[in-house]
Design a protein around this nucleic acid. Sequence first.
RNA 1: GUCCCGGUCGUCUAGUCCGGCCCAGGACCCCAGAUUUUCAUUCUGGUAACACGGGUUCGAAUCCCGUCCGGGAUACCA
Length: 528
Amino acid sequence: MVADARSCSPSMIHPTPRLRFAPSPTGPLHLGGARTAMYNWAAARAMGGAFLLRIEDTDQARSTEASLQIILAGLRWLGIDWDEGPEQGGAFGPYFQMQRLDRYRAAAERLLQSGHAYRCYCSAERIEAVREAQKAQKSAFLGYDGHCRELSPAQRAEFEQRGVVPNVRFRMPSERTLRVHDLILGDVEVNTRDFDDWVMLRPDGVPLYNFACVIDDIDMKITHVVRGNEHFQNGIKQRLLFEALGAECPLYAHIPLILNKDGKKLSKRDADTNMLDYRDKGFPPEAVFNYIALLGWGFSGDRDVFSREEMVQAFRIESIGKSGAKFDEEKLRWMCGEYVRRTPPPLLLARALPWLTPALPAVVHAARTHAAWLENVVACYQERIALYGELGDKIGWLFADPVLDDAAKKNVDKDPAGRSWLAAYAAHLEQGALPPSWPADRQGVDEVVRLPSKKDQPEVACAFWTPARIEADCRAFVEQLGVKFGSFVHPVRAALTGTDKGPGLFDVLFLLGAETCARRLRAVSDAS
RNA sequence: GUCCCGGUCGUCUAGUCCGGCCCAGGACCCCAGAUUUUCAUUCUGGUAACACGGGUUCGAAUCCCGUCCGGGAUACCA
């Protein structure tokens, strides 16, 4: 008999699309979970429906409040909000499965009455033994053997008398082919003979995943289920349960898994798959969102960078890819750089501040008194970092006289006369009009002159030298000195910043200001 | 073992439904060059793929069959 699972057809009965993400609080939110949540969220938003969070906490041994909080924080960090669920409420609650036990018991009772379920008195040991035997015989079928399927009332009474508390199993049709439609996989044919009679309810009345999930999906009027491919077989069990309950089942979309470098399912035990690790390392959340979305879904053939809003505009469940995707940290990193570069400096500064202050306590003060200056500093590094967390390592030289690294020393000593140029330049600069150095009052220069300076930038009126003016002056100075511009510039940069990398030299001079530049140039010049 | 799914550059993918516009496009990475006061950014160019074998067809990445490889599932976890 082939049953066309037509009962699982589009949701004309529920006019409003309702989707859910149903994590179990047994660990952190990992990448795969985040992606599943995101696709559900995006589909709900795209269809103008509701997105809800349901907490599947029936594994009491492993569920923790801490995990729940981490999951919620991870979702919020990514910008995934929910209409119903924890800390949000809603008309279809409660949203914690352990608070819905009465619902499951009632449903189990109905199924027992109708014969779709039965009580199983088998011990864990017996089940284990059956499995071992099946393996030993190389049986095609692995699973519960249906021992208690057709117990007589007398047999049942005997077990009850002995005080054996049964669990409740779903009675799978023994030999039935069904064709199911999946939004991603298309039409798939399976036979119930490959499934065993699975446990719905434990002896203590706590439901198992497949059971609780269906009861809740019915109660919460879920219309579309987007979840990992590892649930495909569960989906078969669940469809049959919907049928037994006389309910319409949602549309299913089983999405491919995210794979690690070795091509294996990404494990939630992998430390670096915890969403909050990305937050704590200073990844821009929008970039992580964008990158994860890309793991299996494309905005278009020629665009990788898109916003949440654009995704919602374009998202369709059916357009999720069919094959698994490997997580590529390099591309994620590139994506982060992309977002950092697009962030307006004041916002970038605000975002990066938490990573700056532990390394550089002075930043706290600077943020209050020299905000525009700090914004210029950040702007100068915008195209040099990918993570907020990387800024702190790079800008220390602005707050304390640096120790020269090897490359810097080499640049200083490249020309025997190099150190003497530094002293001369220091003296020369003192005749000029460099802005005052932090922490002195910079008198508003940073509001007027925006960095990083570009070649074609128009001149601005300013009481102090702008980077363009500093450069013009420097070139004239160097010409008088009679050396090559390039060989002059490198020792200066080294003395000022302690490295051979960084913003344009004249931005550096502008940022550092008169006193600091002179001091550092002399210090290196004298150190010979 | 059994069942299910998948397989386009190293990686993420577009194209596959409705065969020709694809001797396969974009992005990351890598390499070379340009710009430049360094690094970075930016720009230009380059290397690199339709898993394999059979069909069907005037013509196949696209349709069919088989093989191989990969993954998932087979819990009183979710």
